[in-house]
Each structure stands twice: as C-alpha cells, then as structure tokens.
C-alpha cells in the first residue's frame, strides 16, 4: 500500500478552534509521553542501579565487583541468543519462502496464522514445555553428540543427566523467535515485484533459481533486520530460560553439560523475589546492561528495516 504510506493532505490554514487545539495537544502529548517513558526506563534503572555501581566490590554478590558479577550473565545471554538466532534465522527464511512461494495460495494465509500462533504462546508455557518435554528428549542425542563430536568444544560434555542444558534453552529460544523473524521476512518476500520473478522465469530459471535470483536478494535487508529483531527478543527472554536452564555460573561454550552460565534476564527473575538491599541494586544494574544491549540491537534492526522500506518504495 505505498499509496497510503504518505497521505497527501492539503495543508489548510484554518483558524484553530479550541476543540482542535485540545485534541491536537492531547495526541501530541501522548506521543511525547511515550518518548518520556522510554527515557524514564533508562533514568529510573540508572537511579536504582547507582548504589550498586558505586558500592565497593566486596559488597556485590560474588564479592568481586559489579563487572565480574554481570560478565558471566552477559556471556550467557549473548551465547544463548546467538545460537538461537543461528538456528532460527535459516528456518524462518525457509518458512517464509514456503508460505509465500510454495504453499497453495488459498492456504498461505492460514498457514501464516499457524506460525503466528507460535508467537502467541506465553513464555512460561514454553518454559514448562522445555523442562518437561524437550529436555528429557535431548538426553539421547546429547550422549551421542559427546561420544562422536565431543572434540568440538560445544559438545564437550559430560552430558547433563536432566537435559536442562544451554542447548535446550537455545532450542526453546529459537522456537520463540522463529515466528517474529518469519513474519517480517514473509512480508518482504510477498512484496517482491512480480515482474522480477517473471524476468527470472523467462530466462529459464527453475523455481529455486528464481527465488535466488529475484526473491532472496530483494528480501536481504529484511532478513538481516528481522534477524536482529529476533536477536533482541532472544536476549531479553526471561521465563523460558529461567525454567529450562540449570545454572551454575561460569563462562563456558559447552552447550550440553550441566554447568551453564545463566542469562541476565533469567537471573533477575530467579533472584529478585528473594533479594533485598544492594542485591536488588545489582540486579537492576544488570537489567540496565540488558536494556542497553537490546536497545542497541533493536535500533540497528529498525534502521536496517526502514532503509529497505525507503529503497523499495513506489519507484
């Protein structure tokens, strides 16, 4: 709907009525309020984190200072989100291709809804599902992985006996971000100009060659932007990780052992209800780091997606 993107409205110079002024003021105010809230999130987190930032190192949980307290958590956050993205992004692109270019046209919308439903399921349910269903199911495969691929640090083992590993957390995260990525990519693929698809077919391309020639390049920046969105979501996901992951702290790339680094969000959820005093301030400081990281990732993602939107406009 490029025509509706920028409504051309005549700018009429009318005398401002009181009703107009109030209404315009209200709606502008609401918009400004949103910006204020976003600034407020940063400000209030900073205020409540401040005592932990200036506190002496031995008073921070762990006794080694704030940086060393947050670093393993940040590592776990980045590790889980990165691998989740690694799994989810190719799947999401493939699913978007299926819905836009393979599925019968009449079914394609319904199939899209089904994928969207994956995004609607509350994260606590993914957590319970991961704990009770997925984790036990990985016991066999992880044993196999250690045995045959144990030379790769990721699968070093020894495999966890409960299955509550980083690998399961990564898989649950991947399922959760899949629909977000797929929805954005799907929209981009759907907008591929028919002319470009026909141009590819007319020089004798098979369907896959047509997709590679016309559709995938057209959707490339959407794929990148959507992946960043998914990454942002995976970084901040809380309950599923909190439930699934069995935590022992420490920094390791080993995905299938029982000693896993926690993530910032999961750590807050697990520790917050029982914490008091400076512990709370330290948790909020870690939350501030998470906020900064996700904000950066999301801003980057939106910039990439928006640039594509200008690119592919009506020209």
């Amino acid at each position: 709907m490029p025509a509706t993107e920028q409504p051309v409205r005549p700018r009429t110079k009318v005398r401002q009525r009181p009703g107009d002024r109030i209404f315009a003021g209200l709606s502008t105010g609401a918009g400004v309020l949103i910006l204020t809230v976003l600034g407020g999130v940063a400000a209030f987190l900073l205020i409540e984190a401040w005592p932990a930032i200036i506190a002496p190192a031995d008073e921070i949980p762990g006794g080694e200072g704030l940086v060393l307290y947050i670093w393993p958590l940040l590592f776990g956050t980045l590790l889980s989100a990165f691998f989740a993205l690694l799994i989810a992004a190719p799947l999401a692109v493939s699913i978007a291709l299926f819905i836009t270019h393979y599925a019968p046209r009449r079914l394609s919308q319904a199939l899209g809804y089904m994928i969207d439903l994956l995004a609607a399921i509350p994260s606590i349910i993914y957590g319970l599902w991961g704990f009770f269903v997925l984790a036990p199911a990985t016991l066999g495969p992880t044993t196999w992985l250690t045995e045959y691929l144990g030379f790769i640090p990721l699968f070093e083992g020894p495999p966890s006996a409960t299955g509550r590993t980083m690998l399961v957390a990564v898989m649950v995260l991947a399922v959760m971000i899949l629909p977000i990525i797929s929805a954005v990519v799907r929209e981009a693929f759907r907008q591929t100009p028919r002319l470009h698809e026909e141009a590819a077919l007319a020089i004798g391309a098979t369907r896959w060659e047509m997709l590679r020639m016309a559709v995938l390049p057209f959707g490339r920046s959407a794929i990148i932007g959507a992946s960043m969105l998914g990454l942002g979501r995976a970084l901040g996901e809380t309950m599923a990780v909190a439930i699934v992951l069995s935590v022992s702290g420490g920094v390791t790339f080993n995905l299938i052992s029982s000693g896993n680094p926690s993530t910032i969000a999961a750590n807050i959820a697990l520790k917050f209800p029982e914490s008091t005093g400076l512990d709370i301030n330290a948790l909020i400081a870690s939350g501030l780091v998470l906020f900064a990281v996700t904000l950066g990732v999301n801003m980057l993602a939106r910039t990439i997606i928006n640039r594509r939107r200008e690119f592919s406009g009506a020209n």
């Binding site: 901040g236 939350g287 996700t294």
Partner: peptide, 17 residues
C-alpha cells in the same frame, strides 16, 4: 522509530522499570 524500538524492550526490563 522509538515506538518500534520499544516493541523490543525485554519484558523483565519493563518490570524493573
């Protein structure tokens, strides 16, 4: 722009706020 960015705020951060 920031409304779009806000959709990506982790829910736990909203709680902390």
């Amino acid at each position: 722009f920031f409304v779009d960015v806000m959709t990506g705020i982790p829910s736990i951060v909203a709680g902390l706020f």
